[in-house]
Structure formats: C-alpha cells, structure tokens
Design a protein around this nucleic acid. Structure first.
Length: 306
DNA sequence: GGAATAACCTGGATGC
DNA sequence: TGCATCCAGGTTATTC
C-alpha cells in the first residue's frame, strides 16, 4: 500500500518528467478519481489544460504539482494527488494503450523529454486528484519534500510533517503523545500527528522499538518515544532505499516496477512465522478495522491493556 | 473536543 | 465451475 516511501518513489520518478512541462490535454475517464476536486470532470480538464507544472512536491502520502501562475507569478494552485490504497501514477508514451484501471490521463509536453502521458490508474478508487489552492505553511518552512516554497495545498494543510522532513519537530511530537490516551499504533496512523506512516510501517516500527501496538501513547516514556521515532525513521529510510514495499501489482513506481522492501519485513504479514529476534511466532490481531502484527514476547502487553 | 467506528471500493482468495 | 463471502486499508464523516 502506498505509504511515505512508495509515494516518495513516485514523486522522485515524476519530478524530472513533469517539472517545466506544459499540460496539452486532460482526459477524465472516471469522475470517482476526482472526489477531492470541487468541480466536475469538465471543470478539472479545463482548469488544468494549458497550465505549466513547476515541480513535484510531497508531504506524507500526498503529492502535488504546483502550477505556474500567470506572468511568472508564484504558483497559487496545484494538482494534488493521493494514491489511496491502490493508486498508481505512470509515465507512458503518447497514445499508449489505456491501463486496466485508468481514471485520468494528462498529456504533457516537456521542453527536454518531448511529449509524455501521465496516467492515474486506481483499482479501488480510494485515490483521487484535485486542483487546489496553495496556502502558506503554518511554520513558514517549505511545504514538503521536493519544494522550497513555503506553501501547501489547502486540503493538505492539516497533514503533519513526516519524520524525514527537516522541519519535523521531535519535541512537539513527544508533547502530543504525552496528551494522547489512544493506543500508540492508532496515533502513528493519525496523519495529523505524524504523516507518511501506514499500517505496514507502523507495525514494523513498533516491532523494531519493542513497543506493543496497544500501549497508550501517554504511557510511553521519553526514552521509548525517542526510540520509536528513531525506528520509524530507520524503517522509512530503508524502505525508501529499497524502492518501497510491493506485495502484488498494487504498488509500482512511475515505470511500473515493484519495490523490494517486502523482503525486509520483520512483523507485517508474517503471521505465525518466527520473530526474527526471539524466534517465537508473530501474531496477527484485528485492530481498528485492520490488522496488527507483532511479537507478543518482544512487545509486551501494557499492564493497562492486559 | 477527543476518541472510536463505519463507510467508501475492487478484486483476489477462500469456502461451499 | 460458479457463486457468495471475506479481506486488504487511507481517509473522513458520523457517532459517542
């Protein structure tokens, strides 16, 4: 599933192909891909056609392509993308055959690479595209990875910075956790607290930090929170270096290739298999409409939740 | 206001 | 073989 590493791989692949490119045409094949857009498909196509893309930026799991303002003014709008669970952004030759779950296609012209098609395909239609206004960041720091502009799409403004963002504040994160009575895994998945972490990397980080997913966030010591934050960063950076996690064709980079981090997982998806640390079996439990994987020996049940 | 839950969605896997 | 059901999970609206 696309979490921070997967989205960053897509952003990094997209950036050289779209930066400076002119949008020649837009085709919306399925308006369900525009659930975050305030207009209909025709509005989306009209608003985007003829615009020039400035760069490719990302915060957490959100991607956006700022659109050049008129007369060289700073970008005031951006094309925002969220991949949801199964969204893909693919670069294709102009006129390439439609992808199986293709929802939107942008035909662009790049000054160096010529004509290209940017295809948004999404099997489960949880992902979406939108044109949104850019607003100043609350901390005056760059909006996210891939941009130096201190702006962010309005619908991304509530998303916290991710742990790999230089502007992420560890102290503020610790203070937030100290006020939260919720289970630490739930807090890790709350994108308004820390972004980019999804079910896979939450399980992996908690396993690495030896913290039970049901531990109340406020019960964690400063030392434990620091250890968890360090492990979140290690896991995300390792996954990024390996091109993300792919279990099937659900996640691929802009060229349609899978990542390799699934071979490095220690807990997620390893139900009944031996814990790489102690050898006891990894267990899977239902947790807030999804599953949690952990080692009951290495990650002890907190007294309150027992 | 904080926390918990349900709904959205498709296709692969599984059971009968 | 074919049909029904379950499951995966990010985000957000709704409910408590």
């Amino acid at each position: 599933m696309p979490e921070l590493p997967e989205v960053e791989v897509v952003r990094a692949g997209l950036a050289p192909a779209v930066t400076g490119a002119l949008v020649l045409g837009v085709t919306v094949l399925d308006e369900r891909a525009l659930t975050r857009h305030t207009g209909d498909g025709i509005h989306f196509e009209t608003a985007l056609t003829g615009r020039r893309i400035v760069e490719a930026a990302r915060r957490g799991k959100f991607l956006w392509l700022p659109l050049e303002g008129s007369d060289g003014e700073p970008a005031r709008e951006a094309l925002v993308a969220h991949l949801g669970m199964s969204g893909q952004i693919l670069l294709r030759e102009p006129g390439a055959a439609p992808e199986r779950h293709e929802r939107v296609r942008l035909d662009i012209q790049h000054p160096d690479h010529g004509d290209l098609s940017v295809v948004f395909a999404d099997q489960r239609t949880f992902g979406s595209l939108a044109i949104d206004a850019l607003i100043p960041t609350s901390d005056a720091a760059p909006g996210g990875w891939g941009t130096t502009a201190a702006s962010v799409p309005e619908q991304v403004a509530h998303i916290a910075r991710d742990p790999l963002d230089p502007a992420f504040r560890d102290a503020a994160f610790r203070a937030t956790l100290a006020r939260k009575d919720s289970a630490i895994k739930r807090v890790l998945l709350d994108q308004s607290v820390v972004s980019g972490v999804g079910n896979i990397y939450a399980d992996e980080s908690l396993w690495a930090a030896r913290i039970h997913p049901e531990t109340p966030a406020k019960a964690l010591s400063t030392r434990a929170v620091n250890r968890l934050l360090a492990e979140v960063r290690v896991v995300l950076e390792k996954a990024l270096a390996e091109g993300g996690t792919s279990f099937d064709a659900q996640y691929v980079n802009v060229n349609g290739q899978s990542g390799y981090f699934s071979h490095s997982l220690n807990a997620y998806g390893r139900t009944s298999q031996p814990c790489p640390r102690c050898g006891r079996p990894i267990v899977r439990v239902s947790f807030t409409n999804r599953s949690s994987h952990f080692c009951p020996h290495c990650q002890r049940v907190p007294r309150r939740a027992a």
